[in-house]
Amino acid sequence: MNFKKKLMTGIASLSLILVISGCSQDNTEAEPSSGNQYTLAISGSTSVGPLAEKLAEKFEGKNAEVNIEVNQIGSSAGITNSLSGVSEIGMSSRDLKEEEKQEGLAETIIAYDGIVVVTHPTNKVQDLTLDQVKQIFTGEVTNWKELGGDDMEIVVVSREDGSGSRDAFQEIVGYSSGELIRSSIVASGNGNIKTTVAMNKHAVGFISFEYIDDTISTVKINGVQATAENVLQQKYLLSRPFLFVNKPENLTESGQKFIDYILSPEGQEIVSEAGAIRVK
């Protein structure tokens, strides 16, 4: 009898757990759509992500019927997601590759971004030519002394293969993934690079303009300071477009509305507040 009771309670609690877990799943699924909210799924570049989050927040404030979900998973993954329909819009911080264009992706430039070469704040090297940057990242120059700094080893910090920032940086500076110095530290994400460089006086890395703060020191390229104005006047060389990509047939009304909002004067104001460079 006792055993049966135990068994019964066991089975009962098991089914209860199943029911509850089933319910809670239903709930989370139902929540976003309650009140007829539409969930706009956006995924992609970790460089575009913070900007998209800010834009989404403001946009949601004005359009209560849309709920925007921004997933920062990297440019390539975002593009793949928009192609497969997992996300309505993909974010990319690099130009589309030929094969990606052929699959019928539409792109919208929502902002421009500068990439800045960063070093530890104590580093004396403040100015590099594009060629010197290439020499550093390909391992031709391995000591800061050769660039006018202290006599210490250079520690190169790079993003991982597949990152949009890395692709864009390599394309502009002019070296390939195979030429990158092998001993370079590979860190995932802009924030991670910033912390690594901020912690190591030997280090040099590259990050988006949005992530600049006083824990790291920025380097001029060919004597030009890394600022938004210099990017717009095309004096600063390390810049790239921020793209929203989508398959035209997947774009809903809400998605179009969000893109229009970003390109509106108000949206572009947010873009420049966020540290990116406005298109218009």
């Binding site: 998973i73 990297g74 440019s75 390539s76 993954a77 293969d161 597949g162 995932s188």
Partner: peptide, 8 residues
């Protein structure tokens, strides 16, 4: 772990 997010 490092590259799965970006790989295809």
């Amino acid at each position: 772990a490092l590259e799965m997010g970006y790989a295809f």
